[in-house]
Amino acid sequence: MDRVPMTVAGYSALEAELKMRQQEERPRIIQAIAEARSHGDLSENAEYHAAKESQSLNEGRIAELEDKLSRAEVIDVTKLSGGTVKFGATVTLVDEDTEEKKVFQIVGESEADVKSGKVSITSPTARALIGKKTGDSVEVNTPGGGKSYELLDVAFR
């Protein structure tokens, strides 16, 4: 069984989603199915089929969340330190071509959200940065082409 690395915040977010889906969404869907059933003929009842589809999607997501949580390897980033990039590090890079600064944290796949500055450990950028130190130059092969960055800072917060 493969372990899934994630931060404490990522684990909490998955737990919250699971709780919401089990305690709020599931009863709401069951109520919608019961209401649709009361309308009679199920073979031509669009409400019933939509509610059953919704139930299927919700139960699938619940199973997925339970699986991820059971395989989670929670890493408390605040207890990490050092000067090399590893899981949980918040890195500051400067693009060597455009001089544009970028700051992001390396997190687990389920927590990745580029817009909020969280990059998956499996992304090309994170894989290129692992093991590097402040001042190192990093070549990243992205789907948009090669990029060259200088690593300005490594922090754990």
Rank of each mutant, 00 (worst) to 15 (best):
D2I: 11
V4Y: 01
P5R: 04
T7R: 08
T7D: 00
T7E: 04
V8H: 07
A9E: 13
G10L: 00
Y11F: 07
A16L: 14
M20N: 15
R21Q: 14
R21I: 15
Q23R: 12
E24D: 09
R28H: 09
I29A: 00
A32M: 10
A32G: 02
I33R: 09
I33K: 08
R37Y: 03
H39E: 15
G40W: 12
S43N: 13
S43H: 12
E44K: 15
E44D: 14
E44W: 10
E44Q: 15
N45W: 00
A46S: 13
Y48T: 05
A50M: 15
A50H: 14
K52A: 08
L57M: 14
L57G: 10
N58H: 05
N58V: 10
G60C: 01
G60F: 05
G60D: 13
A63R: 11
L65Y: 06
E66I: 01
K68F: 09
K68M: 15
L69N: 01
S70E: 07
S70T: 09
R71I: 08
A72L: 04
V74L: 00
V74C: 02
T78W: 02
K79I: 05
L80E: 10
G82V: 06
G83W: 00
G83H: 03
G83R: 07
V85P: 05
V85M: 03
G88L: 08
G88Q: 02
G88A: 06
G88C: 06
T92I: 02
T92W: 12
T92H: 12
T92S: 10
L93Q: 01
V94D: 01
D95C: 09
D97P: 02
E99F: 13
K102N: 09
Q105G: 02
V107G: 03
D113F: 05
V114P: 07
K115I: 12
S116Y: 02
S116K: 14
S120L: 03
S120Q: 06
I121G: 01
T122L: 13
T122M: 12
P124V: 05
P124E: 10
T125R: 05
A126M: 04
A126I: 11
K132C: 04
K132N: 08
D136M: 03
V138C: 07
V138H: 05
E139Q: 06
N141I: 14
K147Y: 10
Y149T: 10
L151A: 00
V154Q: 04
A155L: 08
A155Y: 09
R157G: 12
R157S: 15
